[in-house]
Nucleic acid binder design. Structure first.
Length: 647
DNA sequence: TGATAGTTGTGTAC
DNA sequence: GTACACAACTATCA
């Protein structure tokens, strides 16, 4: 396949040859179906659609799945980025004698209709390995076959065909970046970008004459317009799609902008050659410290192979360039790594049923999750990042690390799946496998396991930005707080808070947890979760806490050997623990079996630790618990902070 | 099976 | 600036 694709590239690369091929037998009506890959450059599916074509229908289908599913949310920022990308694509087609048709509906319903209406010979699209896309495309292939339509799918969203990479690795994906890089070395360089499409593309056929006049639009009531009618195939606005709030991100979608941004990044080749990701500044916002090409890669406005080819050209001129895993090229390889592992791991975007993912008894705490999501944790560094996420739909990689660690193993002990969902909604570069993979990484659930390396919500940002410029930008309520206090405003004397116009507890929240305490306790919880996973690996009959409890709900455990008895008793114990008063669970737990003890850890994790730390310290496990203790003892960390604020 | 190395932590002591 | 504790991890490969 790779060789065939390479041959196609070479053949099409010869301009005259291309024209001859196109003119020899231009009799077919083909579709190029855009989903991702919203570009003309390096688009082998488009070139394939143009072969032998009398007419090419460039289509995009607005799939209600991406708007209506309650489990899948998309912010107006990202949706509008998509619409801008479609507008740009349409403009590119128009300058080449065609235009983009934006169809509405489920692809499984829209495509069979147009196959028939347009007399389609061939359907071409870019391969997409995400779970939803795979199911959709399998169904579409079947429908195409029933309609006698040829299907051509091209690999161009990733540098390599990830199936090929896995095959070359002996049938399973490498699980470390180092092993992945060695594999890529063995396989060799990716294909060069496909040649640009010709200046004139096979046009759309002329529309049939309008129906006899009936009203201004010349269309009888109830009569279906042709699917290619320009009146019903334009790119909609975000209002037309149904969003109420206007997009606010500073980033514009589209291939034109992607290539402009790529050129801007490469305008300083020595910066490109010496790039080292861990050294970049997460607090830089006037000029972000990285390329911000991720949203363009996500939608395929930019080809990863073009980016890669440009990098190799710079590296040839700068022999002492940086190397994986920190180089700029390595950032493309990280993307490739997560695509490869993700596409070959069942339930990659979930904890339960995911063989790579540590089963950790995270705590379901809607209040703490909401505080994190809504940028009111009381930690300015965290809240500034979450604000930037909402406003720009993009934050620096290390800023993502900060908030992901804070939500999960660092502070709030909320499942990485909840964080992933919030990112999925707001990121304009949201990318299924990258998002899941990185959340597992940061929560020390897979790939990364140094769970005691915890980001401080105070020190980490301060290291880069001691004046707090980033915080002042995204949290204007703190703009006049002296630098000395801006990362910990609750420590500012009341007079200082007054002078800054920001009283903690009134104008800006007090911290929802005390980092020093909860991070220490959570490290112990992680140690316990790791032990539980290890023992369940050694003894597959014994369910891990989360596996046991999720198995009770889903009927599936992490291991196929999870015993029904353990599952049942675990579920029962989980239910009991939920309703038990927290003051009594500690003693009650001592009488439980191991598996039910683990299940109660899942239901009520603040009592889960078996270490001294876990059992004796409970003052900062979450908002609800803090309040309970505050009532009993009259002094909590949050309470102290609130009094510090003058309440 | 044992050695090795791993994109990106923090706080403290020296 | 450097070393160490934190608390002991794991995929890979020779």
């Amino acid at each position: 396949d790779v060789q065939a694709t390479r041959a196609t590239h070479l053949c099409l690369a010869v301009g005259a040859g291309w024209r001859r091929v196109a003119c020899m037998a231009a009799t077919k009506n083909n579709i190029i179906w855009f989903r991702k890959g919203l570009r003309l450059h390096d688009n082998p599916a488009l070139l394939e659609a143009c072969k032998d074509a009398a007419h090419v229908y460039p289509i995009f289908i607005l799939d209600p799945f991406f708007l209506q599913q309650s489990s899948y949310k998309v912010s107006v920022n990202r949706y509008n980025f998509l619409l801008e990308s479609l507008k740009d694509l349409d403009a590119s087609f128009r300058s080449r004698g065609s235009r983009l048709l934006v169809l509405r509906g489920k692809p499984e319903e829209v495509l069979p209709r147009v196959f028939q209406e347009w007399g389609v010979h061939k359907l071409c699209f870019e391969m997409d390995t995400e779970p939803y896309a795979r199911t959709r495309d399998a169904r579409v292939r079947q429908l195409a076959e029933e309609a006698g339509v040829e299907v051509h799918a091209a690999v161009s969203h990733t540098l390599y065909d990830t199936d090929m990479l896995v095959a070359r690795n002996g049938g399973s994906p490498p699980l470390t970046m180092q092993a992945f890089c060695r594999l890529v070395e063995r396989v060799g360089e990716p294909l060069p970008p496909a040649p640009d499409p010709p200046a004139q593309l096979p046009p759309l056929p002329p529309l049939p004459p309008p129906a006899t006049t009936s009203g201004e639009e010349g269309e009888e009531q109830g009569r279906q317009r042709p699917s290619a009618d320009p009146a019903v195939t334009g790119v909609p606005t975000w209002q037309e799609v149904g969003f109420k709030e206007a997009p606010v991100t500073i980033f514009r979608g589209g291939e034109t902008e992607a290539l402009r941004r790529l050129d801007a990044s490469f305008s300083d080749p020595s910066w490109v050659a010496s790039f080292q990701k861990p050294d970049t500044d997460p607090a830089a916002f006037e000029r972000p410290a990285t390329t911000v090409l991720s949203p363009y890669l996500k939608f395929g406005c930019l080809s990863p192979r073009l980016f890669h080819a440009r990098l190799l050209a710079v590296y040839r001129a700068h022999p002492r360039h940086s190397q994986p895993p920190v180089s700029l090229r390595a950032q493309l390889l990280w993307r490739e790594f997560f695509y490869t592992v993700g596409a070959h791991t069942p339930n990659f975007h979930r904890m339960s049923g995911n063989p790579l993912c540590k089963q950790v008894p995270w705590q379901d705490d809607p209040e703490l999750l909401a505080a994190w999501r809504e940028a009111r944790t009381g930690y300015p560094w965290i809240d500034a990042i979450m604000t930037q996420l909402r406003q720009w739909g993009w934050v620096h990689h290390l800023a993502r690390h900060s908030v992901a660690c804070f939500l999960t193993r660092g502070d709030l002990w909320v499942s990485w799946e909840r964080g992933m969902e919030v990112f999925e909604e707001h990121l304009i570069d949201q990318d299924h496998y990258l998002n899941a993979g990185n959340w597992m990484w940061l929560s020390a659930s897979a790939f990364f396991n140094a769970y005691f390396r915890v980001y401080s919500p105070v020190s980490f940002g301060k290291k880069y930005d001691p004046e707090g410029k980033y915080i002042r930008k995204f949290l204007p309520v703190l703009k006049d707080m002296p630098s000395r206090y801006i990362y910990e405003p609750w420590t500012a004397p009341l007079a200082v808070q007054r002078a800054a116009g920001c009283l903690v507890g009134r104008d800006y929240p007090a911290p929802v947890v005390q980092h020093a305490e909860v991070s220490k306790r959570n490290i112990a919880r992680m140690a316990e979760a790791y032990r539980a996973n290890k023992s369940s690996d050694a003894d597959p009959d014994e369910a891990t806490p989360a596996a046991a409890s999720s198995a009770a709900v889903t009927g599936r455990g992490r291991k196929s050997g999870t015993s029904a008895a353990a599952t049942t008793s675990a579920a029962a114990a989980a239910g009991a623990a939920v309703s038990a008063p927290s003051a009594t669970t500690s003693s009650r737990r001592q009488g439980q079996s191991r598996s039910s003890r683990q299940a109660s850890a899942q239901a009520e994790p603040e009592a889960a630790g078996t270490s001294a730390v876990g059992q004796t310290r409970g003052s900062a496990g979450g908002r609800k618990r803090q309040r309970t203790i505050a009532e009993a003892l009259g002094a909590t960390t949050a309470g102290k902070a609130a009094r510090g604020a003058g309440e």
